[in-house]
């Protein structure tokens, strides 16, 4: 089991869209599950003028904090495919136990990427309980340490886009389940989630693409 979670140092953060693009370039035929901020930004990369990638599942509307569980179900159903899930730090805090569930299920084809900006951006940018500025004791929440404690086979954490870009291909090929914490910048006040197509239509297309 390989654990390599860098620790310490002042918190920097990378812009969200380029951070996602690093995965977009390397996804291959992976299923990609997005929610909240990632669900808003990822389609900008993935549409390429021809509509959403058929193996994207934009989990909107979602159950709070449950994107990793939906993605885990897909990973267990389709062990021959890689499944990548983007989750927010607020969503992660809502369901930390799922880190243990992922490991217990033995989902070797599963990558969970937490986009950590310390905020509930969709509700106007309030700090999460895990953000340093919201904690009496100070210090931001160490999701990578949680994942390592839960037993993820590969755990990484990046604050600089260049470091993430240089490592992503290798990380995505390491033994799963994999966990990546990316410190990302808030997108800003103009937060808007565009309404996706009706769910039944999206599910039909997604399932057709899986066949």
């Amino acid at each position: 089991m390989a654990h390599d979670a860098p620790t310490g140092g002042e918190r920097a953060a990378m812009p969200l869209l380029p951070a996602l693009e690093v995965v977009h370039k390397r996804r291959g035929n992976a299923i990609v599950v997005t929610t909240m901020g990632a669900a808003r930004e990822w389609p900008k990369l993935s549409t390429e003028g021809v509509g959403p990638h058929p193996l994207d599942f934009q989990y909107l509307p979602s159950a709070m904090g449950h994107a990793p569980m939906l993605a885990l179900g897909l990973a267990l159903a389709r062990p021959e495919r890689e499944v990548i899930c983007f989750n927010g730090d607020g969503g992660m805090l809502m369901s930390l136990g799922c880190l243990v569930t992922v490991v217990a299920a033995g989902a070797h084809n599963f990558t969970l990427i937490v986009l950590d900006n310390g905020l509930y951006e969709v509700t106007g940018g309030q700090p999460t309980a895990g953000a340093a500025e919201a904690k009496v004791g100070g210090g931001s929440c160490d999701f990578a340490a949680f994942a390592q404690g839960a037993g993820f086979h590969t755990v990484r954490r990046y604050a600089k886009l260049g470091d993430w870009e240089a490592s992503a291909a290798e990380v995505l090929a390491l033994p799963g389940p994999r966990f990546v914490q990316l410190f990302t910048q808030p997108v800003g006040a103009a937060y808007h989630l565009p309404a996706p197509a009706p769910m039944a239509e999206r599910i039909q297309k997604f399932q057709a693409a899986l066949e």
């Binding site: 897909l74 159903a77 899986l210």
Partner: peptide
Amino acid sequence: TIAAGLHLGG
């Protein structure tokens, strides 16, 4: 939601 993912996956 795990069951939902399993169902979506066939």
